[in-house]
Design a protein around this nucleic acid. Structure first.
Lengths: 219, 219
DNA sequence: AATATTTTTTAGAGTCATCTAAACTTTTTA
DNA sequence: TAAAAAGTTTAGATGACTCTAAAAAATATT
């Protein structure tokens, strides 16, 4: 059984390692956790002793299969709660993150499975991120950020990387929700802003925003 | 802002003092919190410094108005979550207590008010206990335990004192839910068991059980 | 009333998560 | 490649909450 803090560190390792595909450095983790490197080193030793991560001094950490499963259980809870908050309680998608950060630590398998059922076994959360199943398995689709798409490409918005409320409010304003179809028209060489079509309207989005919109390109 | 532990102690003080009507002794609190008297003394000092309780050495603690309001906010959350678990997720009333003990500590006024609205502003939880409003106000009805009612009395089950799962399962079995009408037929002098009518059937309940069934006597 | 018992408090220590400051390792730069 | 810079770890300390053991206060008993 993990403490609240251990759960938060493990989740951060999972995300920063891109689901386990690369090592995470102490300072990255320190920044993500809003703490000091020394504290991270201590926690790394604890998670390492529990075999949730592999640790080599001065080289960072890698998440183990065991760690990945546990991280995905937490992420499952987070995303189901976000779905509940938006679908049932009428929260907007920029309001849910903070509360879900708390709710994800409630310990009750029965609760989360009942919640899953109550929500109709959703596949994705309000941000378009996939919800892992009971066993911590994730069905992922290859997602490409908007800033990497060529003009002429048609795609569907899958999810949003950053959960910054200001970003989410902006996306709401322009109608950029997961599921929406867009088309890339052109890219400005000067500031790398992208012109897209959404809801039959043309508009420009900055490089900063376009990096955070992940899309599924139709084959 | 209270820590999780402080919240749990404050809630225990509220309950053990019968909503602030009497002082609570260190050992009572220690037993309720499943901890040692020394730990209780430490926490008493902390809550006292925050002016949530009044503390006099060797004489126990009394809850202040400020403390009562805060305790009722936690109780409001607990009872709303219990209602959610039973009404929406299909939990039985003997399963909800443990999970609600965790959920009651989620910090978000917006969440709890939205949940209240989603549930249709319920007045009582699944055990029949009244749910305090946003301001921590409680509309209470005078409740009398079954073991104190005279034969011939008609009354409505309001709530159940103990949330022991075995008790709740037994009450389910005999149909004794909050809202059910009963009539007291007789009391056995030997073991103080009570004969009652419920759902037009007669049955005996032991002194132990009858102490825990609280009723509203119709005037 | 003096003594015994119960209850409560204090003293001192352990764990968890955190910090600062100093030491150490790796990487970069000149 | 040697020195500087950047990144990481260790050492030692703090705060929150817990404990055991011993001291102190209140209550009960003889």
């Amino acid at each position: 059984m993990l403490s609240l803090t251990e759960e938060n560190y493990l989740k951060a390792v999972y995300h920063l390692s891109d689901a386990g595909s690369k090592a995470v450095l102490t300072n990255e983790l320190a920044e993500a956790m809003q703490t000091k490197a020394a504290s991270v080193t201590d926690m790394i030793k604890k998670l390492s002793a529990k075999e949730l991560i592999l640790y080599e001094r001065y080289y960072g950490v890698n998440i183990t299969a065991k760690g990945k499963t546990q991280a995905l259980q937490i992420i499952r809870k987070h995303r189901l709660w976000e779905t509940f908050l938006v679908e049932k309680l009428g929260f907007t998608w920029d309001e849910v993150h903070e509360v879900a950060e708390q709710l994800e630590h409630i310990q009750s398998t029965r609760l989360i499975d009942k919640l899953d059922e109550y929500l109709g076994f959703p596949k994705v959360d309000p941000h378009g991120d996939p919800i892992p199943d009971q066993h911590g398995k994730l069905k992922s689709q290859p997602q490409v950020p908007l800033d990497q798409l060529k003009p002429g490409t048609k795609a569907v918005i899958c999810s949003v990387k950053d959960s910054n409320p200001d970003l989410l409010k902006f996306l709401d304003k322009i109608g950029a929700k997961p599921g929406k179809k867009i088309e890339v028209i052109s890219r400005e060489p000067y500031d790398e802003s992208v012109e897209i079509t959404i809801d039959k309207k043309k508009l420009f989005v900055s490089k900063e925003v376009s990096k955070n919109i992940l899309l599924l390109v139709k084959v």
